[in-house]
Design a protein around this nucleic acid. Structure first.
Lengths: 367, 367
DNA sequence: TTGCTATACTAACACGTGTTACTAACGCGT
DNA sequence: ACGCGTTAGTAACACGTGTTAGTATAGCAA
């Protein structure tokens, strides 16, 4: 049994009785090409007949474009498994990527060890450009990329660099969240971050928390602050530590819905109720957050749109088009549900469907 | 300002005073090559000095290997955003993929329209092989792949095909779940599937449900069965429909944790309690499921290990090694927590940390 | 006839690598 | 001197495509 040789453009050319060049011109619909309708049809017929599919590698070699863009996270293996934000980004990316006939490569880079991993990814021209989500302050490889003039777009921000980026205003969003708690009468407000402060988003959200306290003249109490690590489990652990410290507080700001779920469980296990004993505001507004019990009051981050915008920007960079904005800030908003206790003040009954705000902001155009 | 030309292996050869062939032999550590230690060092020094990174496209062209494998889901855009299972799979895949110096390409294929999309993906040799998760009965393109002898591994199963696959026994797992409810005294048990019955896993889980009922002599009541669509929202909607029908039931089997969260919210809004009014068993055991309120009794699916095994099998296929098992079935297990009411029978107090089973099965070796 | 333009194509090069077949040099026994 | 194996390295081809520069034909004006 013979292994059937690959169908090349030469085969198509032979079958159609033209040159390989002509085949290329027809297949790629080259704008200025002079091809008679008659031969065009013959070529297409032959290609279809033979099942011709251009070789991606050969094409990439000569055109110097792999038609693949990379989504990279600075995470350790194991931290991906629970990332509810990631799937939303993937969704947004795939949408744009499909419209531009690109492919999406996904990878993570261990922030501790192999910082240069994605440098090689792009130097090898495996991918044409990178979308890096969740940048860290200590990422030197990223600056190397910038120097290499590699197309990069950040989802998030990295102060001191000029890399194009899409983000929300984490600081003021966090501030809004905490101010909401303050308005509800709380003054002892704890905080659990979404991640280590090496991540710029985590640092910004903590800053927002501090700013809100400051604005209300509430002193910052370090004992009320702990650090999450992306996943549910970290929230669960940190909240147990916090509760066991027996430092008094009546509300908490958790800078991630995912982490907040763990926090919630820990609170429950201590026999406390949300929001009656501890009011809670979280951050991200994952699709599930409106459905958990109690529904989370949280900052709605337009994850899908962040991804859409980032990929749209990256594609512009790949085409050497000028960006209208190098730093883009999308709007976030506070979704008031049950966990903060604001709505519970009106009524003590079981919440009706009407009260339980399940609305989701859809749409939003690209650039 | 000149655009600096790419560093090629020729540049390295010149710098080291050897031929390009020698550079290739050194860089790739070709086993039988006769290279003196002295020149080997010179070559490596030169490569490091110049920052040489082999061109992926050129390498792929000549070696006929892209070193990329694809993870493909049969989903519509928008269905990815909430998939808690996906992130777990990505985690498992990345682990294996990194160990083999491969890359991971992620894509979805709209099951209605463009079934042949991933056929082209592999015909273009963009990727060396495919891991297809969540196959559907009506996927003809998949059979075409099999005929093309393209390396494919299924996460899930497709009856009537001989494609290598990794899966759990969805049918018997679902049966276990429902039998658990029956043992607790329930006989009016509703069911909401995880997805449309075009997906083999959804069909299998429904079959398990029916089998359990049959085994207990409980008649199948079609009015108690509805179909989810992967996400929370579908569970919420379907459960509202179910509850509004005023058909009596005391328990429900939801074939997906994600969907179950929506179901939970709907039950709550109707003023009913879990498990006192409606007992619930779900399916998947997402990382968050132990932390929601009440913690879900659910079938633990070893998602990360499914992905690990699938990628390990795919890599074997790529190396033309023989598979020890073409169809691999991993174990699933029922995680009994609060939502089914089993533990509530012992006590009516707030559950202690001890009772709230937060243990996670880790580990498990590869092939 | 010559010259010019527009049309419809094609020959040939370039992209950067892996690999096979071959060679040059050297040591060594006879 | 001769033959022969071993070591260390290289020349040259192949992979399949995009693209530039060039050619052949026809049409048409002068």
């Amino acid at each position: 049994m013979m292994k059937p040789r690959r169908v090349t453009s030469q085969d198509v050319a032979d079958a159609a009785g033209v040159s390989r060049t002509t085949v290329s011109l027809v297949i790629n619909k080259v704008p200025g090409a002079q091809i008679s309708e008659e031969t065009r049809r013959r070529v297409i017929a032959a290609a279809l007949e033979l099942g011709y599919v251009p070789d991606a590698a050969a094409r990439a070699l000569v055109s110097r474009r792999s038609q693949i863009i990379g989504l990279v996270l600075a995470r350790r293996p194991g931290q991906v498994a629970t990332d509810g934000f990631l799937t939303q980004m993937l969704d947004g990316l795939l949408e744009v990527v499909h419209n531009s006939d690109l492919r999406l490569l996904f990878d993570i880079v261990d922030p501790e060890h192999q910082k240069k991993a994605y440098l090689e990814l792009v130097r090898a021209k495996h991918i044409d450009g990178i979308i890096l989500s969740g940048p860290r302050f200590d990422d030197e490889a990223l600056l190397a990329l910038e120097k290499d003039k590699v197309p990069v777009v950040l989802i998030g921000r990295l102060p001191g660099s000029d890399i194009p980026s899409v983000d929300i205003d984490n600081c003021s969003a966090a501030r809004t969240a905490v101010e909401h708690l303050i308005k509800l009468g709380h003054s002892r407000i704890a905080c659990i971050t979404n991640a280590s402060l090496s991540y710029t988003a985590a640092a910004d959200r903590l800053t927002g928390y501090r700013t809100a306290l400051e604005g209300a003249g509430i002193p910052y109490d370090q004992r009320l602050v702990r650090f999450g690590d992306f996943n549910v489990e970290s929230g669960y652990k940190q909240m147990h530590i916090l509760l066991n410290k027996k430092v008094h507080f009546t509300a908490i700001f958790v800078a991630s819905d995912e982490v907040a779920l763990g926090v919630k469980a820990a609170i429950r296990e201590h026999g406390l109720r949300i929001p009656q004993d501890i009011a809670m505001v979280a951050f991200d507004d994952l699709p599930i957050s409106a459905y958990v019990d109690p529904p989370l009051t949280t900052i709605a981050v337009p994850a899908v749109q962040l991804a859409r915008q980032a990929s749209a920007m990256l594609i512009k960079l790949l085409k050497n088009e000028e960006l209208s904005h190098r730093q883009l800030i999308l709007n976030s908003s506070l979704q008031i549900r049950m966990s903060c206790g604001a709505k519970l003040m009106d009524t003590n009954r079981v919440q009706s469907r009407h009260q339980n705000n399940l609305s989701v902001n859809k749409g939003g155009s690209i650039e």
